[in-house]
Design a protein around this nucleic acid. Sequence first.
DNA 1: GATCGGAATGATAACGTTGTCATTCCGGTG
DNA 2: CACCGGAATGACAACGTTATCATTCCGATC
Lengths: 362, 362
Amino acid sequence: MAFPNPAVHRIRCHPLPSVCPDPRPDVATTKAQNKSVTLHDVARAAGVSLITASRALSNPGMVSAKTIERVQQAADAVGYIPNLIAGGLKSRRSLMVAAVVPDIAVTQFLPTIKALTETLEAAGYHLILGQSSYDDSREEALLNAMIGRRPDGIVVTGLIQSEAARERLRQSGIPVVETWELSDRPVDMAVGFSHVKVGSAVAGYFLAKGWQRVGIATGDDRRARIRSEAFVSTFGRPVPTAVVPAPSNLPLGRRALAELLDKAPGLQAICCSSDQLAQGVLVEAQARGLRVPGDLAVCGFGDAEASAHMAPSLTTVQVDAAHIGAIAARLILDKCKGLPVEPRVVDVGFRVIERASTGGPD
Amino acid sequence: MAFPNPAVHRIRCHPLPSVCPDPRPDVATTKAQNKSVTLHDVARAAGVSLITASRALSNPGMVSAKTIERVQQAADAVGYIPNLIAGGLKSRRSLMVAAVVPDIAVTQFLPTIKALTETLEAAGYHLILGQSSYDDSREEALLNAMIGRRPDGIVVTGLIQSEAARERLRQSGIPVVETWELSDRPVDMAVGFSHVKVGSAVAGYFLAKGWQRVGIATGDDRRARIRSEAFVSTFGRPVPTAVVPAPSNLPLGRRALAELLDKAPGLQAICCSSDQLAQGVLVEAQARGLRVPGDLAVCGFGDAEASAHMAPSLTTVQVDAAHIGAIAARLILDKCKGLPVEPRVVDVGFRVIERASTGGPD
DNA sequence: GATCGGAATGATAACGTTGTCATTCCGGTG
DNA sequence: CACCGGAATGACAACGTTATCATTCCGATC
């Protein structure tokens, strides 16, 4: 005897015998693709009113268990998938959160986005992702477009620079979280750390090491510049600097070191604005026969996954990127629930991790 | 003077003293938030009918230049931001595309997502991002939820495994692009390459090199397994294999090599299912005093940004991830415009790039 | 037995936009 | 002068759901 063809089970809109006495002309269904299954169909199939069906599926507290069961079955039977666009229009809850990052391919922000997505997904929310390309005017335009989607929250990487955008966001009433940075004047909420303190801490570490001749390799984005400036300020004297266009990466790091050694031969240590840059510096140093950290010490920023495992392992500044995302999601979800959100500004701090590239443990 | 303890900076939730002077006068703003500016307000301000205002802003061809100007100014004056939820409900165009990836933090897919976002953004579309965590049932649930958002297209990484999900997607009528893989039976469209051919090509390369004793380090996700199996099949004899849980990364690569050398001492070459894994193998080999490629050759997959710059540089299989994203976006945009989409399945191919880690040029 | 109150359900009207079908207006044509 | 046709505008009704207010029903209370 032949095994029954699995394709048999692919029948569409299979009506429960008790539900749809109506012998649906299935051909028409397939053709009339424009006619999708709505809550109306579910209600009819379950023999209840439209609104009861709605409540049974999305507000079960108000409906009897028996009715819920019946509606649930009817929904399954007709293959109902609630239209969140329609629901969102009426309820003013889109169950979406918009996230704006400077560059999607920058690994630094990935754990933040990931934690954000996961926390939101668990609560039935989804993420709309936008990329500003490190351009303030694009960020403004993007935020405008996002507001049009009426998200229940907006998460931005960095402080929003455009005053017009800040004002419009405030006006919109949408919860906003600025991340990866702190502010005494956030649009709404903020989760991050002080880039000034990071720059100072690294400079303090360099000073404690007694290095005299140091250089900086930095991306040209605002936050990297803030760190670099704070470094110079704490270090207390001019520091040769190579600036590369953001997003920084390994090849740019190689070039940056070449440029620095050209400008200032005999450097003892390099402070980099990202681990990717630092990895490039490391590679270029080794390619030039410099021993790290003996001839040249290197410090990065961000604690990339590979940094602890390089040879030598890379000293860096660790930031809990995932924590930032999780907190941002939590702040927004709480605010959506109407819970009081305190404090509005959260400092997640950072940590200098000393590894082999500056003479620390491997 | 003591070096300041870095741990100081780890304080969590540390509210900056200067931060919350917070007698926020925005109470009124927050309250009167329920009344947002609608097209109605714009129409009234411009002295035209609702529908004329609508057309002036989103279908300017049908309206006189003078009227457009007037509506435009009115919109600016009242600070109008169109509600895309409402528009989407009526027009059945959400201007959103859903993308499902196995893991947001996997760099391999980043260029695809980035290109997707950029191409879509240029056309006024935005991306909703979801993560399936390499779990078929989560993928199915996620796709269901996404369908509820009525996106104008869905992009999935890999072929959709759940037959129920495939059927529901077909039923939904939403354009679907399966990426990073090929199929003779796609749900709708596909852009990718043959993992079988990749595995075979690498095996062919290993054979040509004359290596006898080889090993595999592979993630446990479906596509990595397909490549590994094809490798074994072409190689023509059993190959010791270390399997690590996806997503694979550098530390897992170190462990994988340790496991392989334990199982089969004296291996000459390792085929890895990702560059991250290969980098770990490289590090572990060097840590054990093995020269690469002299004692051990290593090949990765994916051509990660750093791979060309490692010491030694990493032989790998290059795939144009960005191209995949751009094509996927184009296919969906074309289909939305009603253009005929041919062909439905696009093979973007791949390339084995020989570098120093297998005896190639640096 | 009348009254009350909560649980369950229903009817209706939105939500803010766009598709569809009218209507108006105008200059040009027969 | 009647007529036509296209350009510009408008009225109205959706889109598919949920908020709001009403209604029914039932057991409990006085």
